[in-house]
Design a protein around this nucleic acid. Structure first.
Length: 206
DNA sequence: GTCGAGATTATCT
DNA sequence: GATAATCTCGACC
């Protein structure tokens, strides 16, 4: 099932409905157990908070497309674009259970020790599914990456988003959604700022 | 098991 | 030039 009108709402409405949905790419399929909502220009944690750029332009487009981005120098994360065209709301796919193509997922995720690790975390999920930056803008109804929604809403819990820096990371934005009891849900980690060694004031050397 | 640091580069200011 | 919607590994309990 693919219902684009369901996706054409704010991400906070769509996110819980994606729990239990299946993302499929070729032989590998993942059932989503954890997602996060991002609300565009209203949301300090969103890539779109400061407006449209070449990277985030897909988020401003039609709902049901895939927004991919590259971060931390080596990782790809995948989002489902939500909302009306012109808004930049989207749902980050954080974790899930590999329900098809486990063998191929294991080959791609060589560092994984247990099968619950295969898609436990947004960058791991992208690797397990073979999603790269090239899949940015793909229509999830047309493929090659597909989204299969479930009929019924899942039971879920909410909490602060993982790894979000600054104002958007606090408890005022409890926009992380997960299915309780699922072993594939990633552990919560708050954002840890990187130390810099550059800002040494002149004359401070003792 | 938990914790913290380092990796590594596209993207934006 | 600084930052980042993260992951992995090594240290330690």
């Amino acid at each position: 099932v693919f219902d684009r009108s369901l996706l054409a709402q704010p991400a906070t409405e769509v996110a819980p409905r994606l729990l239990g949905a299946v993302v499929r790419h070729g032989d590998v399929a993942v059932r989503l157990t954890e997602v996060e909502a991002y609300l565009g220009h209203l949301d300090p944690g969103s890539h779109a908070f400061r407006g449209q750029t070449p990277r985030n332009s897909v988020m401003f487009g039609r709902a049901g497309h895939l927004y991919t981005y590259f971060t931390y120098g080596m990782h790809v994360c995948a989002n489902v674009v939500c909302g009306e065209e012109g808004t930049a709301t989207a749902v980050l796919l954080r974790a899930g259970e590999v329900v098809d193509g486990v063998g191929l997922a294991r080959e791609r995720r060589t560092t994984s020790r247990r099968d619950t690790d295969l898609a436990q975390g947004p960058a791991r999920l992208a690797v397990a599914l073979g999603i790269t930056l090239e899949h940015g803008g793909v229509d999830l109804a047309a493929g090659p990456v597909f989204l299969e929604l479930t009929d019924a809403a899942s039971v879920f819990e909410t909490g602060p988003r993982t790894g979000v820096a600054g104002p958007g990371g606090g408890a005022e934005y409890p926009w992380r959604y997960w299915i309780p009891g699922e072993p594939t849900v990633s552990p919560y980690k708050r954002h840890t700022p990187k130390r810099r060694v550059t800002a040494v004031p002149a004359g401070s050397v003792s």
